[in-house]
Design a protein around this nucleic acid. Structure first.
Lengths: 351, 351
DNA sequence: GCCGGACAGTAAATCGATGCACGAGTCTTT
DNA sequence: AAAGACTCGTGCATCGATTTACTGTCCGGC
């Protein structure tokens, strides 16, 4: 009795006076193969003995698991934490489990995780990878893994079977930059970690396009990019924002508005602004991206771009399920969500 | 070939010219049962074929899984997100997976999760439950589940086999309240959600004891408790703090210092302070608990009590592993970590 | 020369569920 | 009346790994 209670299908069968096959048939949506009376006897036996199927055995036999993998940079980042929560909620509703994997933005770790998940029988994964290339998942995709790439738009050269779900980063960054321009700002800067990540690059593109679309010259607008090439993790996004901001504001002709690659970074930027003795909004406008929970709690509340995480998580899960239960992965497709500008108190007209 | 590559132990055996048993013996740390030459042949075959053990089959046979469960109120809360990340890190180092479960503070959901985990073959769980009673895990404990109750000190009447890991909430709250008293504050208030959760109660006790230990009368110190009995989730902790604070500061003789049950709540309290046109620190001191990442980023940076999450997560995992691999659960025990006061900018002497 | 034991390795049962292939009985059809 | 078709099932191989019980073989000791 290593396994605790462990009522098996055989015991149910004996109790109901049928064969294990019949119990299995009932359990697997083939109740038509028996008389209603038999069916009831089996159901009673199941009830009585408190039978619960052994998922491991089932998985070994069928090759299917009721679990999906979630690979995120780090769930310590509230953005990913919130996403994880929503994904898990969607999964729970269909009796699926979620295996949590923090890649810490290390490619090698990410690869290792995916393989491990595959070995564990997982056939569907939400991959939140910032890597510019997803070639390393190709073998798994070919073997039959369903992968939803989240927060990463489809790239030329991506594996075919990939499903992409992402907010439109270009539009989002455009929106928020436009907002700053509308307020009258002309000297802007963009604060970002390494631009090797696809979504970061898109956001930067949106930022630039808003400036040029407004008929401004990039040089005139004094649009700067303050980045760092070392591979910053999430926990350091804020520190990065803080350090860069102090630098930027110390320069000769400092920007009056700062666009951060995401909210965590923006919080750091705000801290940096204060470090130099200035006030956010009054002296320097700051905007973020994501609309994490804290964006509206910090002082001043952050103007940012909202990602509808719950909807996106539900969508991601449904894709996975379709891929897993359909047996074959879905044909690759791309879902681009239109983000929403959320104006709060961290932006104001320049002095 | 449903299963992709799927090299089995049999194929390895054939390639090496031995029986499957021998391969298994090698794989399970019994290399002494064969000649070094044989051993090498098997190892070469494994290498050559790229064999990787099927964890599902292994689990079915042995009853053991290389996975643990993590039940938290909500990983959207940065505190739990950070804990999850550290736990996952500790697990990864030993090749364990982490199954993520958000209870959303719903007892029924928590119970359902635990059963599901058990059915899935999980034999070790970190349970972050705020429920005053853990009676519902008793059957699982008896069946052989190893449970580490995290952020919850041992309670009289708890199941025997429980391992508790928690920060000393009483001491922590005492420390931070003491700090306020040292600064000269005499009119304090405590802001908390429902006190039914064990740790919240302890923190409140620590708060009260600091006041009486200082030789003050509770009435003199004007120590108030502002709580709400509706079951607030994490995402609302901040809103609760905000709403209560506005109320408290609107009263006749408002407190000069506010102690929040945790950092999320404290962030809300800070927002509430500003809502009433006051300044945090200058007009009203605010303290939190946990020292989440954002505590030092928000403005002003939050004075709080640090929980050494990484160390605690590592400890929790080691207990689970011992419980799982030892076959039998460990005898119940309790680990109480001494927290550390972190003084930042949200506290100052009263006006 | 025979027994006991260490050594090197294997056969086969087992974990629990699944589902194909088959079968016995009953009803239709021509 | 024989052949087909349908109903209500069941037998058994199978998923991949583990592990117990066992078989030869060789060696040393008395």
């Amino acid at each position: 009795m290593r396994n605790g209670s462990s009522v098996t299908i055989y015991q149910v069968a004996r109790a109901a006076g049928v064969s294990p096959s019949t119990v299995s048939n009932l359990l697997n949506g083939r109740p038509g193969r028996m008389l209603p009376a038999t069916r009831q006897r089996v159901e009673e036996a199941i009830e009585q003995l408190g039978y619960r199927p052994n998922r491991t055995a089932r998985q070994l036999r069928t090759g299917r698991t009721q679990a999906i993998g979630l690979v995120v940079p780090s769930v310590a980042n509230p953005f990913w934490g919130t996403f994880a929560r929503h994904l898990e909620g969607a999964a729970l509703a269909e009796d699926y489990h979620v295996l949590l994997c923090n890649s810490e933005r290390e490619p090698e770790r990410e690869r290792r995780y995916l393989e491990q998940l595959w070995d564990d029988g997982i056939r569907g994964v939400v991959l939140c990878s910032s890597l510019p290339s997803l070639d390393h998942v190709k073998p798994l995709l070919e073997a039959g893994l369903t992968v939803v790439a989240f927060d990463r738009t489809a790239q030329p050269g991506d594996p075919e079977a990939l499903v992409n779900i992402s907010v439109d980063n270009v539009v989002g960054a455009h929106l928020v930059t436009q907002h700053l321009l509308d307020l009258g700002h002309r000297r802007l800067a963009y604060v970002s970690g390494s631009l090797r990540a696809v979504n970061r690059q898109e956001r930067y593109r949106g930022y630039l396009s808003a400036i040029t679309d407004a008929g401004l010259d990039l040089a005139d607008a004094n649009a700067e990019l303050s980045t760092s090439d070392t591979s910053y993790g999430d926990r350091d996004a804020a520190e990065l924002g803080r350090a860069r901001t102090v630098e930027l504001l110390g320069s000769a002709n400092p920007p009056t508005a700062l666009v951060a690659m995401n909210d965590m970074c923006a919080l750091g930027v705000c801290a940096g602004v204060r470090d130099t003795g200035r006030q956010v909004a009054e002296d320097v406008s700051v905007v973020g991206f994501d609309d994490i929970l804290l964006a509206e709690l910090c002082a001043p509340a952050l103007t940012t771009v909202r990602q509808p995480l719950e909807r996106m998580a539900a969508e991601a899960f449904q894709h996975l399920r379709a891929g897993i239960e359909g047996g074959a992965p879905l044909p690759g497709r791309s879902l681009l969500i239109r983000p929403e500008l959320v104006v709060r108190a961290s932006t104001a007209p320049p002095r």
